[in-house]
Design a protein around this nucleic acid. Structure first.
Ligand SMILES: [Mn+2]
Ligand SMILES: [Mn+2]
Ligand SMILES: [Zn+2]
Ligand SMILES: [Zn+2]
Lengths: 138, 138
DNA sequence: ACACTACTTTAGAATCATTATAAATTAGAA
DNA sequence: TTCTAATTTATAATGATTCTAAAGTAGTGT
């Protein structure tokens, strides 16, 4: 009744054992059409609701960090209070709704290519990220 | 022997009493030609060295947050571990050296104007920030 | 199926930047 | 100088994240 086999392969191929905790988290994170932006706290709450068996908070942290290390998640820092993770691991830009603290992906075509006209000697560019903060129209 | 009068005015005009702690921090932060990017930890260390009288950590936090509220400092979140503050309160972009965790201002002319081709209904853009992560050339 | 070992999960403790508290001090006004 | 509100301060509390070390599990080989 599940397409778990896909996730099992995904995990195995990156040297992670497909435990039921990891599979549960995989289904929750990667069985989506749209990008998912979440904090560990969000994820923890959702797992509590949508799952019968409990997954310890330590495991959620461990798993999310493993997934990040394997390149399945991207971490986004927008404020010190909490770290956001992103199922869209490509280079992309974001809207941040400062009223709701919600992140929204911008598509390639939504932002002109950024051209940086300065370079630092001995340094090379690793990434260019745009954060567009938006708020309610009065 | 000081141009404290400038800072005293600055503080008074925004309803902050010019205490010696605030003046000390003003001198350290605003008596510079270049932008200063710092964490509270940085500031605390510098104050310990460059000052004879001690300023409590709580006061450093209070003061930096007051200055931010008054618009004399800008907060920049680049990772969850620490919050950076910026004496350049204009809208501007940054290099982040991921080897040293150092922030460097980009000038207006260093980055083409960013054009966002998407808008969210009911929302207006409050700011657009570019973060260019750089690392050592091999 | 069984045993073995490395990997994983887990509860709880530890960490650490930040925030809150509430008592002592100080600045500005009268 | 006196009075009051603003400020400073030491200290405790908070809370997200990381650490620990003990118990459980998956994969391998027999
Ligand atoms: Mn913040
Ligand atoms: Mn981080
Ligand atoms: Zn995203
Ligand atoms: Zn800056």
């Amino acid at each position: 009744m599940e397409n778990n086999s896909i996730f099992i392969e995904k995990l195995r191929s990156s040297g992670l054992r497909p435990t039921k905790q990891r599979l549960e988290i995989c289904k929750l994170l990667f069985d989506r059409k749209k990008t998912f932006h979440f904090t560990i706290g969000d994820l923890s709450k959702i797992l509590k609701k949508e799952t019968n068996k409990k997954i310890s908070l330590a495991t959620i942290y461990n798993t999310v960090h493993s997934f990040k290390k394997k390149g399945y998640l991207k971490e986004i820092s927008i404020n010190r209070d909490k770290s956001y993770f992103d199922t869209n691991t490509s280079n992309h830009h974001h809207f941040l709704d400062i009223d709701t603290n919600e992140l929204i992906d911008l598509k390639k075509e939504d932002v002109d290519k950024i051209k940086i006209r300065k370079n630092l000697p001995g340094k090379k560019i690793q990434s260019i990220e745009v954060l567009v903060k938006v708020e309610n129209n009065n």
